[in-house]
Design a protein around this nucleic acid. Structure first.
Lengths: 156, 156
DNA sequence: AATGAAACTGTCGGGTT
DNA sequence: AACCCGACAGTTTCATT
């Protein structure tokens, strides 16, 4: 599992402009278009690139409310039902099993406080085994990217 | 600011497969290729689509450690310095100003615990005004998407 | 929003270092 | 093994209806 500088630059460029043409990418890399396409195909086959996506502006879409919800389950037996609900809800963007006082940390996005209330009451609290939820409302977002720190990979 | 069903379907399709051709998109929408391209261009100009990106597998890249760090500043005067550091660090993926016991919630991603230690000690604690940090380690990630809940937009 | 023509891009095979 | 070149099919784009 080796990643040379050209691979990292390729990943970086495709994170910045996911629809750029192979010719354009090749220009930035100093390669021909087929060579650039080959390298990308290899990165996809190795599982480093899992797909491509349009990036949407949540606020422009009217999704003005982001929140983090810490969830505590009262027994591991209720895990499956909880995770099923997590996967079924489009408003739950992320769900992480975390260390600390609570079991799970969710990142959710919805339109307004009423929708958040419905999410907490109907989608979460209603699940058997959800003992407690703690909600942090996002007042403003300073930075939000899904691009991992590619510069730091050489150290690994 | 109107969004019809075709717009929402367009956004959804482009979130799933960001590099699909206009011809392919047009097929899914029941339109001709130029019509589909026109609709996408309009969504970009309206700011709903902010760009396109390759999606990377952080674990496959060796970025095995994700954490959330709650940060408390001891005085608003130290805000600017803190935010400058946040924007300068590639390992800090997100920074949200939140309600609750702490001021900011960061999502960070790095290679291993040593790198996380360096992030907390050198990048955060070293900033003047950072009074306290609380770190939650992510044990496993159940779900992680950046695609907003498009189904729920009709209610707004 | 659909059609048709021109320019461009992606992709494949063959050859090179 | 990685890359370049040339060629063809598919795609984007523009003008027109």
């Amino acid at each position: 599992m080796e990643l040379n500088d050209l691979d990292i630059k390729t990943l970086s460029l495709l994170c910045q402009r996911g629809r750029m043409t192979w010719a354009e990418l090749a220009g930035q890399l100093g390669l021909s278009a087929p060579a650039a396409a080959d390298r990308v195909k290899r990165l996809e086959e190795r599982g480093l690139i899992t797909g491509y996506s349009a990036l949407l502006d949540a606020e422009a879409l009217g999704l003005n409310l982001t929140a983090f919800i810490a969830v505590t389950l009262d027994h591991p037996r209720h895990r499956a039902g909880f995770l099923a609900q997590v996967n079924a809800s489009a408003e739950i963007l992320e769900c992480h099993h975390v260390t600390g006082d609570d079991d799970y940390l969710l990142k959710v996005r919805c339109c307004h406080t009423r929708a958040l209330e419905a999410l907490i009451t109907d989608q979460l609290k209603d699940i058997e085994g959800v003992a407690k939820t703690r909600t942090l409302i996002v007042l403003s977002t300073v930075k939000e990217t899904q691009v991992p720190p590619l510069d730091h990979l050489s150290e690994s």
